[in-house]
């Protein structure tokens, strides 16, 4: 019948009127955040970093600045270079995570926070000192060794540098996770639904 379509619409809005609203009142309540979330505060382990500057090269915007000097250490130990400057300008960062993907020694991680607002643009540059001092709550993005043990950056304790790397992963293999030859148990590879 004519007019029924309009009445149906009224029913739908009334149904939603009675239902609980879906709004989340942000500062008080929060959306559950996934451990893979690519957040703002980068996590950097100086002990793992060899100052190879792969992250700086892979950054599409070139916002990572690294200055090093030869430290007299040995190359195989990875301490041949000492870091003078390690700046990430998160004012221009787009959080694509390519730098984390590029890091061969698992020294750089995405952070888990997202509430980094500042009054000045200059304050948005994260310096090495701040990165050293910060609590290490790394995101599990592109870090299956963290994800594999169910690490949640929101609730779990900070990760020390010795546990953050791939070598601490029980199935530490030359292959990357998921590649042929990798142990079936290591990669999170359950087929959905069965």
């Amino acid at each position: 019948m004519y007019g029924l379509g309009i009445l149906n619409g009224f029913l739908v809005t009334m149904k939603n009127f009675i239902k609980k609203p879906v709004t989340i009142q942000y500062p008080e309540e929060r959306n559950p955040q996934h451990p893979r979330f690519r957040g703002e505060e980068f996590v950097w382990y100086e002990d793992r970093c060899t100052a190879c500057a792969s992250c700086a090269k892979y950054c599409p915007l070139g916002i990572i600045k690294i200055v090093t000097h030869p430290s007299g250490g040995k190359l195989p130990e990875g301490d041949a270079y000492a870091i003078d400057v390690f700046d990430i300008d998160i004012g221009r960062c787009m959080f694509c995570g390519l730098c984390v993907e590029a890091c061969p020694y698992d020294a750089l991680f995405m952070g888990s926070g997202f509430e980094e607002s500042k009054y000045k643009r200059a304050d948005l540059v994260i310096h090495a000192d701040r990165l050293r001092a910060a609590e290490k709550h790394p995101s599990t993005w592109f870090r299956p060794q963290l994800e594999g043990r169910g690490y949640d950056p929101q609730s779990d304790a900070p990760v020390p540098w010795k546990e953050a790397g791939r070598e601490s992963w029980p199935h530490h293999l030359p292959q990357r996770p998921g590649e042929p030859g990798a142990d079936g148990a290591d990669a999170p590879s359950s087929p959905a639904g069965h």
């Binding site: 939603n16 009127f17 609203p21 879906v22 709004t23 009142q25």
Partner: peptide, 13 residues
């Protein structure tokens, strides 16, 4: 407020 509830949100609060 009511319009917000109809639209499944809270409205000014």
């Amino acid at each position: 407020r009511l319009l917000g509830r109809f639209q499944s949100r809270l409205g000014p609060n």
